Simulated scan of single mutants.
Amino acid sequence: MWIPLLGFLFLLPVNIPWTQIAVSWLAVVHYLACIMPQLGSVLYHLFMNHEGGESVYQKLLTLDMCGVCIVNTLGALPIIYCTLICYPSTRYMALFSYTALSSYAIYCAITAHSNITRLCSFAWQAFFRFFCFFLRWVGLGSGHPSSLHCYVVMDAVALLGGMINIARIPERWKPGKFDYWFNSHQIMHILAVVSILYLHWGVIADLLWITGYSCPLE
């Protein structure tokens, strides 16, 4: 977990063409979205050997969940912005609505009592993103031609990781054989990194694309 954190923390800024991006705050938001889940996860696992009892564990879990919520929230803002680039009023309303919806998702995630309900907490955010994907697919939304593929893969990989973690595959088939390596939790973390990489590729393509894009005149 340290390796992805350090990689995103120091290598990601080098791979963001800051000077070529017209809407700079979207690039900053994207960078924060990529590093926060890694940071939350590292802190969560680093202090797992505490002796503070359930209350300390819940605080660490909340910190970890906040990282996941941040990537779901901040990570989608550039997607929404670029999708609705030609509809300013709708764009700002969508950004506000998604942020408000994400606040509720954060509350649901940190108060969930099981992995299943915790995963379901992000369902409404996923539906919102899928609606943006649908708008692009039918030609009502904007964006770089390659970014939609990246976003679909991003969500599919993230969902797969969450389901593997919940299903406890493969250790449920061979108890004790995967205690240290290749267990569901490790697979989930690997897929989470892959998902964020696809988010990065899609967002950077979009941000560069809108720099030179002009909305059609009505």
Rank of each mutant, 00 (worst) to 15 (best):
G212V: 06
F8P: 01
R91L: 11
L74N: 08
T117M: 14
A158G: 10
Y107K: 13
P216N: 05
L26R: 10
K59W: 10
H144D: 11
R129G: 03
A156D: 04
R168T: 13
V153Q: 07
W25H: 15
S147T: 10
L207R: 00
I166D: 01
C34M: 15
N15R: 06
A192G: 10
F178A: 09
G162I: 12
I85V: 14
L207N: 01
C69Q: 03
T62Y: 00
M1F: 10
V152S: 13
N115Y: 14
W2K: 04
L191C: 11
V56F: 15
L135P: 00
W18N: 12
V68D: 09
L74A: 08
L84A: 02
A192D: 01
F130S: 08
S55M: 10
A33E: 05
A100I: 06
D179G: 04
M163V: 15
L140S: 06
C150H: 00
P37G: 13
D206S: 06
F96D: 03
Y180D: 07
K174G: 02
K177E: 13
M163N: 11
L140D: 09
Y81G: 03
E51C: 09
A158P: 02
G202V: 03
I210V: 13
F128A: 10
G67W: 00
M48W: 12
G202W: 01
L32I: 14
A109I: 11
V14K: 06
L39F: 11
T19L: 15
L77M: 11
D155R: 07
I169E: 07
F127Y: 12
L11D: 13
L135W: 05
C150V: 05
S41I: 04
A112H: 13
W137E: 06
L43D: 01
Y213V: 05
L12R: 12
C132K: 04
A156C: 08
A100D: 01
L43G: 03
M154K: 14
H45A: 09
W201T: 08
L26Q: 06
G202P: 02
L197D: 05
M65P: 01
H45K: 11
G161Q: 07
P17R: 14
C66E: 03
I79D: 00
A76G: 01
G139P: 05
T111A: 01
I190D: 10
A156Y: 05
G52Y: 07
T83D: 00
P170L: 06
I166N: 02
L46R: 07
V56H: 04
V203F: 07
W18D: 02
C86S: 08
T83P: 00
